[in-house]
């Protein structure tokens, strides 16, 4: 496991709205917000329900299943020293079964094998002592 000092990629900084999400990732749980008033599921997190305006949203564990809504294949690394070893890599907007979208990486297959609506499932990767990222692989 690498320390924060040697991990050179951007590190998510939790804030009051997002802290439960990142804490969930550390327990291998993919959490999204849920509005008890109207049933709306929400990601990214916010202080209010974007659908009905209610506050006091709860968190629920998503199934981890989703499909690829859109994706890119990064071939030119930016910044170069940080991503040179990773290209080509896939960034996708994953549409979760619960209806929200989440940016992530698709791992466990060749970039050429990614297609629209491809079923994927979450997997968790610890990148520093503090940070676990939710990634997706073919289901």
């Amino acid at each position: 496991m690498s320390s924060v000092e040697s991990y050179e990629k951007p590190i998510p900084v939790p804030d009051p709205d997002s802290a439960p999400f990142w804490a969930g990732c550390r327990e291998s749980r993919l959490l999204i917000q849920h509005c008890e008033d109207c049933g709306h599921n929400q990601f990214p997190p916010s202080n209010l329900c974007a659908h009905c305006g209610a506050g006091g949203l709860s968190w629920k564990q998503a199934s981890g299943a989703g499909k690829v809504f859109s994706w890119i294949v990064v071939r030119h690394p930016v910044p170069k020293p940080v991503y040179a070893q990773d290209v080509p890599y896939v960034v996708a907007l994953v549409e979760l079964a619960e209806g929200v979208r989440m940016p992530s990486n698709i791992i466990g297959c060749s970039p050429e094998d990614v297609v629209a609506d491809m079923p994927v499932k979450v997997t968790f990767k610890q990148v520093t002592d503090e940070v676990v990222l939710p990634l997706f692989e073919p289901a």
């Binding site: 990629k9 951007p10 590190i11 998510p12 900084v13 939790p14 804030d15 997002s18 990214p44 890119i72 990064v74 930016v78 991503y83 990773d86 890599y89 960034v91 989440m102 940016p103 992530s104 990486n105 990148v127 940070v131 990222l133 990634l135």
Partner: peptide, 10 residues
């Protein structure tokens, strides 16, 4: 950016 940059979407 906490939901984008950590995945190399920068």
């Amino acid at each position: 950016t906490q939901f984008t940059a950590p995945f190399g979407w920068i």
